[in-house]
Design a protein around this nucleic acid. Structure first.
Lengths: 227, 227, 227, 227
DNA sequence: AATGAATGAGACTTCATTCAT
DNA sequence: CATGAATGAAGTCTCATTCAT
């Protein structure tokens, strides 16, 4: 009875997906630790026992959510870096791919970026590696730009981190900004980032040395008077 | 007997500070929820009961940590915006002030940026307001730059968020990057950000329209084949 | 599967009742605050976790006990005041109804009359109202008697309180008096109370004025010498 | 230095009295278990250590409160039963003596009547005996009345309990009835009680047998339908 | 006489997980 | 497939009392 088995499996996976959907919503709202397995069961309309039939464990649920974010990111990232597009275009595409997840799957991304520490042992390692793979797409792209000799900045690792900072932290506030489109926010970020890293070194910060030192002295004063 | 009273109070506050120090370290490593009051007591060398003599409640500890980060940030920020420095210098000083906390008080900032959701009720409101006040320093500064007519970008709110993204997310990885100095990382960020927002609109992203569309089509393909 | 569901529910409620039975016994012996949830669990043969599956909270247990006393009291009281019986008969029936609870459910009544202060917030209000409703049955009945013009006393509120004093305080000592029947104790109380309130004013206390004043002077002396 | 010692002792006792005053108020409001030693200290303006210098233990405080109620009651009761007054006058004087405590020292009496169970061991026994001694004054007085052949009721023990019920339970509601005078409430109780116990048996309850039985049948119905 | 600091047991409650049915 | 019942450790917090100073 292969058909019978398959039908069961399909229904099983459908229900499992539903449970994960429910969990994502709860985790993103109340936190991973703040969400009880009982809450998930209740929201999914399943008793505790049945729930475990689908999820295995609470941590497996968290891992599943990680996969849901990382897998498309890796697939799209791989396609982008494999493409023939120019360095700025590749970077913009990576930006759009990343922002698409962040903005269109806010609950998932919140859990992914905020609760990854809750993963322990083997899972922790596995997802650290996956995450690193995505970051490499960005690093390699920027590195190619530098090899073109087009960049003002030289530290590719730091530039990669800056790019990720700029994008990732968006998950913290995007929930409160309805009506923002992926492509326009990506364009905004990239206009800043690309103009920021392209060109001759030192344009904008020039000639501020003395004023900056005076400001630093001021800060030391404030800092000192607090103790 | 002012001296007697004061000496006792001093000792009390000294020990209290020590308990908070211990808590910061544990919260930043294991998470606020993942850290038990018993753990804090053990690490501080205090029995459960004595611990509560100093902390009042676990949440009060979290609030204290928030204050430790926000108070200097607000004091320095206020001094900066009140200074006579030019727009780029003010922004660089804000950057240094913020990065100083992020890099020199990594544990505190980890707790502050990662666990603020655990604050409930009145405390939550109080610290949301304090946080907003610091963000206003950045916003006002950028706004002044735009009024000078010097900015490529027009959306001050979004630029503020970009600035904060760039800096704040640093807390996620700075622990793994020893040997990075506040002033050099701040200079790096500001070179990107200032060059990114200054100047005529549209320099770097120009002429990428067609290539971008081809890339987007590629992404749609990848996205579709996953389902 | 209604039968299946019902059977489970039935079993749940049966066990829940048992837990409440156990709690009543412990609360009445050691006091509400003096009884730990652990004690209840042990006496009911349930682990701490399983106990909470049945009770929800310690205070819910206390509320349940209140209902067990008040609900029959209100049902019977409503039937009595709705009946056609004469004023003395209605009062005797209220007396028997109240004493039935006090004497046949001593543990419940002990908790109800002694620990009601432990209820907080909404529950406190709810049970104050319920209690007041029962007292109204007594008040209305006595009021009807006064309207017949049969009463020696005129203050219906005070007479109501006297009636309740007489009956309620029984919970304090009835545990030490085995072999007392509800009907005979009720008859005793009612013989006193009805003869006490019926008839012309002032019979028994007459002609005691002067002697009373001498006695009061004596008391003042005793009281003064203590200081 | 006898004078020095005496002065110390006096001040000690004055402060001790103050602590007890504070404790009475708190115990009566929040319950004995619900009041912490810290609360008492704070309200008395004493640190924990100093508090224990005066009180010895929390339970000793409770015992002291018991003495404050029972000692005047016993002194006055002894004087009353030793007096030459007639049976009704003696009973009225006992009533006034008891009600004087209940109404003029509501906090003390609340603690005395409500929290006596918290006393353990030797203290429990000691105060049970004291309490019994006061009850004996009532019992002996009523007994003398019966020996005169004036009473409708014969069970002196039960009549004693009824008398005490009537008076003692007053502590439960007297706090909510401002403006009630000891002498008038005592007169009210005694009018009921004396008229209730004096005279030929059976006056008021006569001729109600059949109606009472119908009412009891009604109650059985109500009780049955509840299950 | 008085204090603040410390103790350690015990309070109520929640939780992820298992298992017989 | 699904359930309800059970577990037991761990969670935060309170409390009466003691003791060095």
């Amino acid at each position: 009875m292969p058909s019978k088995t398959e039908r069961k499996t399909e229904r099983y996976y459908r229900k499992r997906e539903h449970v994960v959907d429910v969990a994502v919503r709860l985790f993103s709202r109340n936190g991973y630790v703040g969400t009880g397995v009982a809450d998930i069961g209740e929201a999914a309309g399943l008793a505790r026992g049945a729930l475990y039939y689908y999820i295995g464990s609470k941590e497996a649920l968290l891992a599943e959510i990680h996969d849901r974010v990382l897998d498309p990111l890796l697939a799209e990232g791989a396609a982008i870096v494999a493409s023939e597009a120019s360095f700025p275009v590749r970077l913009r595409l990576l930006s759009e791919s990343l922002l698409w997840q962040i903005m269109n799957r806010q609950d998932h991304v919140w859990v992914f970026l905020h609760e990854y520490q809750q993963l322990q042992g083997e899972l922790r390692i596995r997802f650290r590696q996956k995450r690193y793979r995505f970051e490499s797409f960005v690093r390699d792209t920027i590195s190619a730009g530098r090899d073109d000799g087009a960049l003002r900045i030289q530290d590719v690792d730091l530039a990669t981190l800056a790019f990720l900072n700029l994008h990732n932290y968006t998950y913290q506030w995007v929930g409160g900004r309805r009506g923002l489109a992926v492509e326009s926010l990506s364009a905004f970020y990239c206009e800043i980032f690309l103009n920021g890293i392209l060109g001759e070194p030192g344009d904008a910060s020039a000639d501020t040395g003395a004023a900056l030192d005076r400001g630093r002295a001021l800060l030391r004063t404030v800092r000192g008077s607090a103790a």
